[in-house]
Design a protein around this nucleic acid. Sequence first.
DNA 1: GTAAATTTAGGCCAAATGTACTAATTATTT
DNA 2: AAATAATTAGTACATTTGGCCTAAATTTAC
Lengths: 206, 206
Amino acid sequence: MNKKKELLLKIAKRLFTEYGVAEVSLRQIAAEVGISHSNLIYHFPSKNDLIIALHHQLMEKAIALNQQVKTASHPLEGLLQSTQIGFTILYEYRFLMIDLPHILRDNKILHNTFLDLEKLRADMYSIEIQKAVDQNLMRQELYQGEYTGFIEHIKIFSDAWIASSAIYDSPENNNIIEKYVKLFMGFFYPYLTDEGRSVFDEVYFQ
Amino acid sequence: MNKKKELLLKIAKRLFTEYGVAEVSLRQIAAEVGISHSNLIYHFPSKNDLIIALHHQLMEKAIALNQQVKTASHPLEGLLQSTQIGFTILYEYRFLMIDLPHILRDNKILHNTFLDLEKLRADMYSIEIQKAVDQNLMRQELYQGEYTGFIEHIKIFSDAWIASSAIYDSPENNNIIEKYVKLFMGFFYPYLTDEGRSVFDEVYFQ
DNA sequence: GTAAATTTAGGCCAAATGTACTAATTATTT
DNA sequence: AAATAATTAGTACATTTGGCCTAAATTTAC
């Protein structure tokens, strides 16, 4: 990736975050960077190309950082670590999540990427929960399909917390990520066993 | 409310739902109705006025329908009923929730309305949960603030399920509302007492 | 050092949009 | 019936935006 392109993406990301994807034009971005409209188009022919490139950046960072988190002692610890990392990176690219339906509506490729990712996430959660059940950290299902529903809950939350934050949280608040990581982890608490709870408290409250 | 205005709102709602708020212009709406662009502007000077009027419709319907649900025998039954009603009405106006951040970004009035509504909802949930705890249908908190977090979970879900559905559900699926009402009710299950669970099963599975 | 490729800028165009103004038509009131 | 108010249509204008083409400038390759 070019230095120049990285600069363009950085500024595009800032403007998208500040004003929303729909409200920012290629001309505005070019003006902000200090280059001509044509020049920006030379590098990124359309707004969609910028968005795809930024999404690509996000994925690269997420993959790179998550490979550093493999030595968790418990499923719950790994979960907390990857949640913190994931939420932090995602927040940097929050314009994607804030305008997600709008972006995916006119971007079939990205939409399909999201559908694929959703399946991966569901599998990942499913495996982690199974591990936690096996280690007697989480209880058995109370009814058939309970954890399937639970996974739906946390998937929707993972997609939605940024948009929710954009609506309800004060922009001055600088504990946003911490707040939503905590809320996310709170999803698990009622499903934990007594043992799970003591492990959880230990991991989570240092 | 005028017959004419109602027609305009109906068609605007359809177009917003189908193509997204940002992608529909006043000229398109006018063309679809079969009136001149100027005429539409006479009734609704801007897109925002249409959105505010539609939101007003939504609130009127929600208030009217919820007044018919006062005779629930349990908090859980009332919760289920008002959830079903609320989700059904909201789904009719789903364009509002799908493009929510975008809409609220350039609509301070509606944004403040949402912030106020959020507080009302939180209080309502808080009261219902307290009732359920008092009636031994839901358990006590396991830790200080557990139900505060829980209310955050269900508020975010309530705001987000429509956008999530727009992204992940097949448009042919016609059990969408049922699916998300079920998911919503599933949030409560792990917090129920044994008694709460038997009541819940009875209410929910007829 | 020269040729080729890459990058950059400027201008032009067509389409769309919001806005405003005027005139005509229709409905309502008196 | 006449006057007044409400509704509707037409038009024109400024702005913005995405696309496209050409030429200049800069970098890279040979």
